[in-house]
Structure formats: structure tokens, C-alpha cells
Amino acid sequence: MRALLLRDLRLAFRAGGGFGLGLAFFLIVTVLVPFSVGPQSELLTRIAPGVLWLGALLACLLSLDRLLALDWEDGTLDLLATAPVPLEGALSVKALAHWLVTGLPLVFAAPVLGVLLNLAPAGYLWLVISLAVGTPALSVIGAFGAALTVGIKRGGLLLSLLVLPLYVPTLIFGAEVARRGAQGLEVGTPLLMLAGITFGVAALMPFASATVLRMNLR
């Protein structure tokens, strides 16, 4: 398991591994927003938490098709499925690696981009907390989508279509924490719901992902 995590991280940081692509995408989306809605700082302040959450979600989504497709193409998944590691565990580890490479950098980048969008000073802390709590759920749910579509050639668009509706609850509660935090309101309930979703999917989703991956390997 540890070997799989280290291997995935190592691959991500070598050439062609795609580290930083999600981050760059996040930056570009955030920069494009003022161009599309106008530069009024009050408006940007109001929409900043939501825009940052949406940008982080899309950046996560963008890298999902690499999560399993590369291992599928070179036959690694066949070999992993016959190896003495439970596929559920292997998928959890791969989701964790995806989060460390994609989600975690977004958490650190978000406050910087918050400055560009004129985020309210009270919002920075809650933005970071909500992203740190919520983005792991995005990786775990995304792993399910990747396992569903792994056998389909050019399944990237289909993957997005399947995963985006599953992201709705996470996005709602995550953005709600960030929004309420920025307005100085109480954030306890949505934060607990967000944490509940993250822990719930981390515990249960790998079983569904492994089931569909086995179906695809048959």
C-alpha cells in the first residue's frame, strides 16, 4: 500500500506526470472570472468563496481521467487486481495520492487567489478549512467515476457528466462554509455536514469503486 502511494506520488512529480496542471487551471479560471463579470470589487467579494470552490472542483475534475486510465493502458491494473492487495485499498490509496497531488496544492493556492478576487478578510481561514475538509471527498468520488469509465475510450467527457452530479452535495456544503465564513456567520452546521460527507465517502465509496473496477477488468 505504502509502495503504491509512493509510486503514484513519484510518477506525478516526474516529467509528464501532470503535477501542477490542476493548479494552473485553478489560477486561469480564477483570473478569467473578473473578465466575465466585471471588475467591481464589491461584486467580486460577494462571489469569491463560490468561485474559488467551483474553480477547485473543476481543477480536481480535470485530472480525474489520469487517475486510473494510465494504469489501465499499460496493464498495471490487471496486475494489481491479481496482486495480494485488496482492490478497495488500492483505490483508496490512489485517491489519496490524487488528493495529495491535486487537492492539497489547491488548498494552499486558494488564499492567494482569494486576494485576486478581493475575498473578505474573515473568509480566508474558512475558505482554507472548507477546502481542506471537502476536497478529499472530490478525489474519492472521482475515483469512483474513473473506475466506472476506465474501459471506455475517450471517456473523459462521460466521466465529467457522471461525476458532476455526485459533486453537488460536497460543493453546496463546502461553498456554504466558505460563504458564511466570509460574511462572519456561524459555520458549524455546514462544516459538520461537509466533514460527514468526506468521512462517509472515504469509508464507503472505495467498495463501490472496486466493484465497478472488477466489472471493467473482466
Binding site: 452535495p169 455536514m193 465509496m205 466489472m215
Partner: peptide, 22 residues
């Protein structure tokens, strides 16, 4: 695969319903 998607989707549909109410 669609059957598993239907099961998982149902759970998330219910979750979304409560999230949206909130």
C-alpha cells in the same frame, strides 16, 4: 456498471436533496 451507478446515484440524489433544502 449502470446498476451500480444507479445505486450510488440514489444515495447522492438523497444527499443532494437535503443539501439543497439546507
Amino acid at each position: 456498471l449502470t446498476s451500480v451507478l444507479c445505486l450510488v446515484g440514489s444515495v447522492f440524489a438523497v444527499l443532494s436533496r437535503y443539501a439543497v433544502l439546507f
